[in-house]
Computed example of a mutant assay.
Amino acid sequence: MTMQLKKNTDQKRTAQREFEELVPSRYALRVGEIDVLVVSDGVLPLPTATMSTNADPAARAAWFKDMFLGPDAFDWALNVLVVRSGDQTILVDAGLGGQFPGFPRAGQFPRRLEAAGIDLASVTDVVITHMHMDHIGGLLVDEVKNRLRPDLRIHVAATEVEFWASPDFSLTSMPSPVPDVLRSTAEQFMKAYHDKLRTFEDEHEVAPGVVAKLTGGHTPGHCVVYVTSGGERLTFAGDALFPVAFDHPDWHNGFEHDPEESVRVRVRLLQEAAASGELLVATHLPFPSVGRVAVDGDAFRWVAAFWDY
């Protein structure tokens, strides 16, 4: 009886894994000689109002309707990056983690890394674009903390560390419980990893061809990551832009600590990407979030890359 029950359980788990593989959760590409893997950490639901806090409600409703989203909430993608350059394996951001109630479909990156054959113990470096909970929460999960190597280096802008010592939420427009959770998560992260932090001021080469650069805006210490090799470049934009940013780069996001500066950062990044033709990936663009940017009048147009399969 017990053996039969175990057999049935194993068969169900196998069937579940096979079903899960029908839904892609990682996408691999090469930038010159550098391997890049985009990994989905899942999705979390957010109010549509957070994407456009300074927009006319009718214009916001029309945009979400045109995108077949909303009207009141939508699923926000969560993407992290794994980059292999030389003998270094770099994780860019770490997703939400599974410790926050109400977000059961997020916090998936640990098992998806495992499914991709990437051992967390092989990660030599982590770049944190900024210390919001959906970028550092994954590092606070026991199954992750216990498997990381003792000499792990975590790269984050010095401005970001300073900001979270006494964060200012006065210009944000977040759901009411969020600021306290963001603050406590940042405190947990600093307590757990303070001895592994490698801070930088403006720009830092994490590995050959992998550079973290301070942008500010979304948070004072927000950074992007440039991957450059063989005449090609990919930019991981973190939270500098969101799905609505191409049509309405001037719309504010409720999670931006400096909305006006965020607009300037966003427009500059989009203009650079359009001029260079480089690949662009961002945390909250729909997975796999690999594409290019074109100028479209006073706005921009997202051109999704064709999947290479």
Score class of each variant (00 low, 15 high):
residue 139 L to S: 08
residue 51 M to W: 15
residue 229 S to R: 12
residue 159 T to V: 09
residue 121 A to E: 00
residue 117 G to E: 15
residue 177 P to C: 03
residue 63 W to M: 07
residue 34 I to R: 05
residue 169 F to T: 11
residue 196 K to C: 14
residue 56 D to Y: 08
residue 98 G to R: 14
residue 280 L to M: 12
residue 168 D to N: 14
residue 225 V to I: 14
residue 227 V to K: 01
residue 198 R to V: 15
residue 214 L to Y: 00
residue 212 A to W: 00
residue 76 W to E: 12
residue 28 A to N: 12
residue 47 P to G: 09
residue 244 V to W: 11
residue 168 D to V: 09
residue 194 H to W: 07
residue 226 Y to A: 10
residue 151 D to E: 14
residue 146 N to C: 05
residue 249 P to Y: 14
residue 63 W to Y: 14
residue 296 D to N: 14
residue 17 R to G: 04
residue 185 T to H: 02
residue 17 R to V: 06
residue 212 A to Y: 00
residue 183 R to S: 04
residue 107 G to H: 12
residue 230 G to W: 01
residue 303 V to S: 05
residue 304 A to C: 08
residue 258 D to Q: 09
residue 79 N to S: 10
residue 30 R to M: 04
residue 89 T to W: 02
residue 180 D to Q: 11
residue 52 S to V: 02
residue 169 F to D: 14
residue 262 S to V: 07
residue 299 A to D: 15
residue 215 T to E: 15
residue 111 R to P: 01
residue 93 D to V: 07
residue 194 H to Y: 12
residue 122 S to T: 11
residue 116 A to V: 06
residue 23 V to D: 07
residue 286 P to A: 10
residue 33 E to H: 09
residue 202 D to A: 15
residue 105 R to T: 06
residue 174 M to A: 06
residue 170 S to N: 09
residue 10 D to H: 08
residue 14 T to Y: 10
residue 186 A to V: 13
residue 114 E to H: 13
residue 25 S to G: 12
residue 77 A to G: 09
residue 156 V to N: 03
residue 83 V to I: 14
residue 57 P to Q: 10
residue 52 S to L: 03
residue 169 F to W: 15
residue 268 R to A: 11
residue 140 L to F: 02
residue 298 D to S: 12
residue 221 G to R: 15
residue 223 C to I: 10
residue 84 R to C: 05
residue 49 A to P: 00
residue 143 E to W: 00
residue 30 R to Y: 00
residue 168 D to L: 11
residue 139 L to N: 08
residue 124 T to R: 14
residue 207 A to K: 04
residue 118 I to N: 04
residue 229 S to Q: 09
residue 139 L to W: 02
residue 197 L to V: 06
residue 1 M to E: 09
residue 209 G to F: 00
residue 197 L to Q: 12
residue 251 W to A: 02
residue 291 G to N: 07
residue 253 N to F: 15
residue 85 S to P: 08
residue 35 D to V: 02
residue 209 G to E: 10
residue 7 K to A: 07
residue 83 V to E: 03
residue 82 V to W: 00
residue 4 Q to K: 14
residue 146 N to P: 03
residue 232 E to I: 08
residue 90 I to C: 05
residue 22 L to G: 11
residue 40 S to M: 05
residue 255 F to H: 07
residue 190 M to Y: 10
residue 236 F to C: 04
residue 286 P to M: 04
residue 115 A to C: 06
residue 183 R to Y: 00
residue 187 E to I: 08
residue 169 F to K: 01
residue 293 V to C: 06
residue 14 T to P: 00
residue 98 G to F: 13
residue 242 F to W: 15
residue 141 V to W: 05
residue 45 P to S: 13
residue 132 H to W: 02
residue 26 R to V: 13
residue 257 H to G: 01
residue 306 F to K: 03
residue 251 W to P: 00
residue 42 G to L: 13
residue 279 L to R: 05
residue 225 V to P: 06
residue 255 F to S: 09
residue 204 H to F: 10
residue 228 T to C: 05
residue 21 E to K: 07
residue 89 T to R: 12
residue 27 Y to H: 13
residue 211 V to Y: 04
residue 192 A to C: 07
residue 257 H to M: 14
residue 64 F to C: 00
residue 265 V to E: 03
residue 251 W to E: 06
residue 173 S to P: 02
